[in-house]
Structures are given as structure tokens and as C-alpha cells.
């Protein structure tokens, strides 16, 4: 696999959210506004980068039996770094993401990439993989946030989208999150399946 493909695979083909169904909790919870969604995406990407690089750098050293505890310590350390940085430089964001900053630790994407990619590949490949996965995650968050903020508040980044549009509050509320992601996943499946059907012909 070329380096570019490693990066690209996380974006669309193996998009962690829409295709692999990983890390869904923060996606639904923090996609109520573009700002929060973007913040969560960047925070998770940072942790993913850190953990992938460290794990792949130590892949010959970590004994197999204790690899999961080792991964968890590494990931938790990076999450705490993010918590500290957010509190110091983006206090507003840190408040609005709240509970979901520490919960990056248990974001399945990160442990999954450490276990299935970083522990078997070189540092540079793991870095690219993390970057791709992180960008895919952020893109998914932004897409969801765009739909939910646009329809639910009628705004984008606090600016009105269409003057006079009466927002459908349900889209901002939890049901809106579930419905939106369900239908988006359906859409991505449809795209994937359509491609397959064409190849068969």
C-alpha cells in the first residue's frame, strides 16, 4: 500500500464513523454545533496521532500479554494532555465538550488503530494512518454537525443560514442525532453497494 493510500483509506473507504461504526458516542454527542464538532475532531485526532506514533515506535518492546494496558496508559496520557491544553487555551470549548474530553480514552477508534495498525507498522505509516483516520472522524463530525446545526438552529457558526427559516429543534435534540447518523450511514452503504454492483457487471 502506498503512503497516500494509507492516508486516504481513513477518509472515505474505511471512514471510522460511517463505514467501521467506531467512536459513535462523541460523534452524536458533540455534533450539535460546528465549533464543538470541529474541536472534538481535532482533539481526537491529536490523541490518535500521539498514540499511534508512540505505539508503533515501541512495537518491538511491548510484551504481547500486557499490550492493552500499555496502550491504555499511552492513550490516557495523551487525553490528559488534551484536557490540560483545552482548559488552558480553549476554556469555552473545554466547557462545552465537558464529559466527552476524558471519554476520548475509550474512543474505540484509537485503541483499534493502535492494536490493528500501529503495533504492526512503521512510525511514518502509523502517523499517516492516524492522520487519515483522524481526518475521517473530523469530517464525519463536521458533516453531522453541519446538518444538525443547519436544520436544528438554522445557523452556522452563529450566523443565520437562510433568513426566515424556522428551525426544527428536534435535529439538535438527541433524536435528531440518531436519525441523521442512521440515514447518513444508509447513504454511505448505498454508495458502497452501488459501486460493487457496477463492478460485478
Amino acid at each position: 500500500m502506498s503512503k497516500w493510500q494509507i492516508f486516504k483509506s481513513g477518509l472515505f473507504k474505511n471512514n471510522p464513523v460511517f463505514i467501521l461504526y467506531l467512536g459513535l458516542c462523541p460523534v452524536l454527542a458533540t455534533s450539535t454545533s460546528i465549533r464543538d464538532g470541529f474541536g472534538m475532531g481535532v482533539a481526537a485526532t491529536f490523541v490518535l496521532l500521539g498514540s499511534n506514533v508512540i505505539v508503533s515506535a515501541m512495537r518491538g518492546v511491548i510484551p504481547r500479554k500486557v499490550r492493552i494496558p500499555c496502550f491504555i496508559v499511552v492513550i490516557a496520557t495523551f487525553v490528559t494532555l488534551v484536557e490540560l491544553f483545552l482548559a488552558a487555551y480553549q476554556p469555552e470549548l473545554s466547557k462545552s465538550l465537558g464529559l466527552f474530553v476524558p471519554l476520548i480514552v475509550v474512543n474505540c477508534i484509537i485503541l483499534y488503530r493502535a492494536e490493528s495498525f500501529a503495533s504492526k507498522n512503521t512510525v511514518f505509516s502509523s502517523f499517516l494512518d492516524a492522520l487519515g483516520m483522524g481526518c475521517g472522524f473530523t469530517l464525519a463530525l463536521l458533516l453531522l454537525a453541519f446538518i444538525r446545526e443547519g436544520l436544528g438552529k438554522g445557523t452556522l457558526l452563529g450566523y443565520e443560514l437562510i433568513p426566515g427559516f424556522e428551525p426544527a429543534v428536534i435535529m439538535i435534540l438527541p433524536p435528531g442525532a440518531f436519525l441523521t447518523i442512521g440515514l447518513l450511514m444508509g447513504f454511505f452503504n448505498w454508495r458502497k453497494n452501488r459501486g460493487k454492483a457496477l463492478k460485478c457487471d
Partner: peptide, 10 residues
């Protein structure tokens, strides 16, 4: 999973 999410939404 997609239909499960829609159901969860309802």
C-alpha cells in the same frame, strides 16, 4: 446498524 440508529432515534 443504520436502521438500528433510526429506531433508536424514534
Amino acid at each position: 446498524v443504520p436502521i438500528a440508529f433510526v429506531t433508536a432515534g424514534l
